[in-house]
Design a protein around this nucleic acid. Structure first.
Length: 415
RNA sequence: GCAGGUAUGGCCAAGUGGUUAAGGCUCCGGAUUGUGGUUCCGGCAUUCGUGGGUUCGAGUCCCAUUACCUGCCCCA
């Protein structure tokens, strides 16, 4: 009989990793709340149409990466490959604009893409993201980027680089796309097959091509920065000036474009230089999507946001030590259990209290307490049980307290 | 979807056609010390991802398949 395994591209998040996830999620939620962002939870599956309209009929995500299925009533549904479309759908559906603009929202949860798994790439992966809907270009972009940076910094991550670029407003982007297409058309013969395809499907992406020979050719490609109109230029300069003021380091990458169709103005990615992530080194990415809301049937509304990959982030967080706790050493597991329960009831600080369920040898229990990183060992052998006095030892500082009453014990444990 | 690599216990691994598949870590049990990671003893793979084949004989060779890894497409 074949062994049961988690499906391809999925994984179990076990204790150590789960701690990292908790840290990421709790840090994010605090930072977002402080910035006035509210959490929004949307369904994990949506009508397939939502994604074909938002992400783009021609995109790879829609064409070959969606988990699409038909339910018992013949509805075509899709496990969400990303969340922005859902958030915008909810925004329109519930007329959130009536609650005042901008709507500042954040989300977290699983996303699904049928891709070839690799390091930092899974079929079920998890994102945390923020969306600010209803703020004009330049009004909130800086805040949005700053929140991303702050989150990563608070998580203690180094080796990160912010890459930023602008695509300009619709007019600028269109003018540029045309110029780029003309250019790409003139070099069609010389570039790789992928780029020949991109000429039709997604000309902006050609600039990102990994083939060295192509990169050489694209040295001569027109730059978006020569096609920005005055408005776009001003907004762009403003954003950069803000980054300077906040002392956020960045690199302008004129070749940075986002894969999804609906972006305009500023786009950005934060990449890690760590080896952990291999080729999937983008930790956080986002940009402005002023056209998406109307594409999905809402009023024309500007918006900006980003998403980060929790798996990628978690793999960068340094291993954390255990955080204290008390281990009861006893030759009577039942007595130890009763004491543990009582301490948990009375301990408002939520100090971790545990014991050895097997009532192993004294030394073994002590060894376990030390190995597992507990701060305190409580000796609860027959002597102590009979006397009703408690004896604990701080395993980190080698300090002992003897002859403690239960009240004293609780007091010491909750400083 | 394309190209390449790898697969031996919970983890790290030795092993390159010949009897019972090293070793280390972890885990479990025991002995010794009633107070720090000690030392000693014992236990933990009828089996080498899975399925076929070659052979007197396969973890070792061949084929297929699956999973993982690396890169491409794309992307967090």
């Amino acid at each position: 009989m074949a062994k049961l395994k988690a499906p391809r591209g999925t994984q179990d998040i076990l204790a150590q990793d789960a701690r990292h996830w908790q840290l990421i999620e709790s840090t994010a939620s605090k930072i977002f709340q402080a910035a006035g962002f509210n959490e929004i939870r949307s369904p994990i599956f949506e009508s397939t149409e939502l994604f074909s309209r938002s992400v783009g009929e021609d995109s790879d995500i829609v064409n070959k990466e969606m988990y699409t299925f038909t339910d018992r009533s013949d509805r075509s549904l899709t496990l969400r490959p990303e969340a922005t479309a859902s958030i915008v759908r909810a925004y329109i559906e519930h007329a959130l604009d009536r609650q005042g603009l901008p709507q500042k929202l954040w989300y977290r949860g699983p996303m699904f893409r049928y891709e070839r798994p690799q390091t930092g790439r899974y079929r079920q992966f998890h994102q945390i993201g923020i969306e600010a809907i209803g703020a004009e270009a330049g009004q909130i972009d800086l805040e949005v980027i700053q929140l991303g940076i702050t989150l990563l910094e608070q998580l203690g991550l180094g080796d990160l680089i912010l890459y930023i670029n602008t695509l300009g407003n619709q007019a600028s982007r269109q003018a540029y796309t045309q110029a780029l297409k003309d250019f790409l058309g003139s070099v069609q013969e010389d570039v790789c097959e992928d780029c020949q395809r991109r000429y039709e499907q997604n000309p902006l992406r050609a600039l990102d091509c990994k083939v060295p020979a192509d990169q050489e050719i694209y040295q001569g490609a027109p730059s978006i920065h020569d096609y920005l109109d005055d408005e776009s230029k001003e907004i762009w300069q403003q954003t950069l000036a803000g980054l300077e003021k906040l002392e956020i380091k960045y690199k302008i990458d004129p070749k940075l474009v986002r894969g999804l169709d609906y972006y305009s103005h500023c786009v950005f990615e934060i990449k890690s230089t760590s080896k952990e992530l291999g080729a999937q080194n983008t930790v956080l990415a986002g940009g402005r999507y002023d056209k998406l809301i109307e594409d999905l049937g809402g009023k024309t509304t500007p918006a900006v946001g980003w998403a980060l990959g929790i798996e990628r982030l978690a793999s960068l967080i340094p291993a954390a030590g255990l955080d204290g706790g008390l281990f009861i050493i006893s030759d009577d597991a039942l007595a130890a259990q009763l004491l543990a329960c009582k301490l948990r009831q009375d301990n408002k600080q939520e100090l971790q209290v545990d014991f050895d369920y097997n009532a192993s040898k004294f030394n073994k229990q002590l060894e376990r307490a030390v190995k597992r990183g507990y701060d305190w060992a409580l000796f609860y052998m027959s002597d102590e049980r009979e006397s009703g006095k408690y004896k604990i030892k701080n395993l980190r500082k080698s300090v002992e307290h003897e002859d403690l009453s239960y009240q004293d014990l609780v007091k010491i444990l909750s400083p």
